[in-house]
Nucleic acid binder design. Sequence first.
DNA 1: TATTGTTATACTCTATAACTATA
DNA 2: TATAGTTATAGAGTATAACAATA
Lengths: 153, 153
Amino acid sequence: MTHDERLLSTSRTLPIALLRARETLMVPIRDMLHEIGLTEQKWRILRTLDEIGEVEQSTIAQHACLLLPSLTRTLRRMEEEGYITRRGDASDRRKTFVRITPKGEAILAGNVSTSVRLYARVEEQLGRDKLNQLLDLLEDLQAVDLSKPASQD
Amino acid sequence: MTHDERLLSTSRTLPIALLRARETLMVPIRDMLHEIGLTEQKWRILRTLDEIGEVEQSTIAQHACLLLPSLTRTLRRMEEEGYITRRGDASDRRKTFVRITPKGEAILAGNVSTSVRLYARVEEQLGRDKLNQLLDLLEDLQAVDLSKPASQD
DNA sequence: TATTGTTATACTCTATAACTATA
DNA sequence: TATAGTTATAGAGTATAACAATA
């Protein structure tokens, strides 16, 4: 055995460390979202749609870390609120394509400065190199395949 | 201005990158928790109590990233289930101290191997150096103070 | 048969305010 | 006045299964 059968300290446990780090960042972001009446989930959906354009719902669910049943209800509300539109796909009529509206783009644009300011504060205290290193490592981690067991001793 | 007033790509946005990376890890952990009938929150509470011993509820809330009202209800259920005990503080009778029970410790111990296996898979694919680097950076990020504005240009 | 998405349901968590008790 | 915790409540998300439509 190369590893002890002991639990790691919570600050060295990835899921908890990721959550705590995220909570630090989310405090000012929640303030912003509260002012504009969006939930975290709706914000992630808008960011996703703004970035990748018109896509089907399964793709949004994957990118925004949401389950399809949650997404269905959230998108219905967002459509009512005018942030997104939906249209069926002609070639595969099971699919629905979702697109951000100008109103959706506008609310993102109107709050860019908050994101930029936050990013600047983090960069100021962490340093640009460390920040980029962290983003690189998070991309690596996200790509890790946990479906196969690790090699056994 | 040193920063463009544009939104970063979602994979280079810390809150989203942190969430996606965490989701990757949580898939196998949720399977484990489901089997033993614990929610993610209860699991974090047990991990916290196991690590720092008998503490007041505000401290648990902070460490496990939960709000006090959520914690109150969850701890009541966990007390009924025999995972924790609570006792009032004699010197400051507003406080309640919470402690993990042997049953709580047992359920952690019984699932160490899942955590260890997961950690091993990540280490195998990411490398030990990168993994430690990531954990260091997450600790740094968690300690960032976002209450003061960044220096203005 | 598998996939895309919807609906229904039960449960849980979140967020906020109001409240009690204590310091 | 401030702090620790509880209660109440409304809203939202999570998880699962069952379902319809389509491929």
